[in-house]
Design a protein around this nucleic acid. Sequence first.
DNA 1: CTGAAAGCGCTAACAC
DNA 2: GTGTTAGCGCTTTCAG
Lengths: 316, 316
Amino acid sequence: MSRAFTTPDIVAPDKRERIYETATQLGYVPNAIGRSLSSQSSRIIAVVVPAADEYYQHALGALARHVIPSDYQLLLFESFESADLEVVFVSIPRYHVDGVIVASSIVPVSQVRPLIASGLPVLMFNQDVTSGDVASVSVDNMAGMRALAVLLAENGHRSVCFVGGIRDATTDRARYRGAFEHLAEVGIPCRYVPSGAFTYEAGYAAADEVAAFAARPDAVMAASDAIAFGLIDGLRAHGIAVPEEISVTGFDGLPQSAWKAYDLTTIEQPMQELSRLAVETLVDRIENDEPTTPTRQLLEGHLQIRSTVAKRKDSG
Amino acid sequence: MSRAFTTPDIVAPDKRERIYETATQLGYVPNAIGRSLSSQSSRIIAVVVPAADEYYQHALGALARHVIPSDYQLLLFESFESADLEVVFVSIPRYHVDGVIVASSIVPVSQVRPLIASGLPVLMFNQDVTSGDVASVSVDNMAGMRALAVLLAENGHRSVCFVGGIRDATTDRARYRGAFEHLAEVGIPCRYVPSGAFTYEAGYAAADEVAAFAARPDAVMAASDAIAFGLIDGLRAHGIAVPEEISVTGFDGLPQSAWKAYDLTTIEQPMQELSRLAVETLVDRIENDEPTTPTRQLLEGHLQIRSTVAKRKDSG
DNA sequence: CTGAAAGCGCTAACAC
DNA sequence: GTGTTAGCGCTTTCAG
């Protein structure tokens, strides 16, 4: 009997060896499906993620890595355009996964509540949910953006605009708020310019709008790095020098932000810690089914001062 | 009985309705695990992929999207550094997946042969395997690189070097060969400069080497876009103008290659077709277990002429 | 320590 | 059309 595989130490060594031998000879490997069925645990975590988005691709990679030590596998559920979320969230329970990570700042929490209600451990990644009944791991968007605003103010900027991505995204709101609040405190106006998406293209297009303003801002804060890259290229295409004429900041700390052609001043999300924390939290909840209250965890982003923010003379 | 779920049309409508009602009332959803166990088919495809690599992240996203219409799910297996492949390939059969996609140009085919021998449908993505016993879907690396070489030659370049990534990668070999062969035909030398990885950083570092050459090349062909981006920034950091002094070409057609700061001339992999073809081929093999011979499929890349290749005067 | 047997939720085969 | 039953490969319990 295959106690040899589950609790090897409790089986006579010689017998164990013989079992292993014949097993490899026959090419036998224990079947995880059978195990799942009987043990009611699959050691699989579902992760729903917009697989077309740069940021979430990184997140996914990081999650995949951090799940290895705990010996779980990730079952992928694409959440972007292609599949509507209804279908996704209905099909997840079929697979009897042990838990699910929802990586998105736009999937409404209401959508995942049924899952939680069914007793499945769920964790929101990159969406800070304050209602207390849902676990979440994310970066402190407000604090990060505020730090960037402080930097801008300290460097003598007088008029900034914020180029948002998707207005409903919790990240968008929190980041704008962080910028706006500090700027307001020090008497600097901050106008919200919508771009429609967290993408390079959206940022590039938004540059047209910024360039057309009668009163041109001396800094623009993008809601994400991707937008910032587009913004920088778009601004430059308009003959506007970055950062000499307009400073630009990002948010996320994508690898590209360090690329010399952009060298973007931004807030870097501590992706490794974020993802490690996410899987640890979830795995903990899976394996200790004590009714721990769902935790809301906020990590500090790291201010990366690079070269897209200039120092302005006080011309006031 | 739950024939209502599998073959709804063969069950009396009224009865079916009543079953559905009580089902939703009880929050019942058919359990895929039980189904897998009994039907010997899980509708899950394993995909092993280096989740930290830019290119493969895109591939994964595309695969995830194309798997939806066929109603399969992707089970992720990280293949980069963290986990050694031995473990990965041993654990795949446990999950009784219906098929596996190995996305990598460096995983040796020998490593996947045991899987294939066990009767599991396997498909190599982005690795062209010519041995005929393994299905593969990839872009025609040699032809693509040759097209780039032709472009360079036509534009009057006289001395090029090729900055490789990982020497053992099949993509690296084929791309170098494509460049070298055509260049040799027209009497242009092409030196191989190793960089050690398909990354921005590797490319950036390789720029030092290129800059230090006594006889500086007038063009450098990178084995991938990521390398090219690093190369461009590195070259510029050395005060070398791209493309005025040195032209640069890439390979892959990552989204960033279209970003204005680089605007890289490259070969774009038709990612959507590639991934669609990959899942279609694999699904076909899964569902029709006739002994079709494994197909080797090669798609043409698309030459994107942008602005990193200059026209040189014939100074000869 | 090690056999034997029940049962996880489903499909498939076989009656009715 | 619709009930019933035997496994799929494992874990778990209960005997020995």
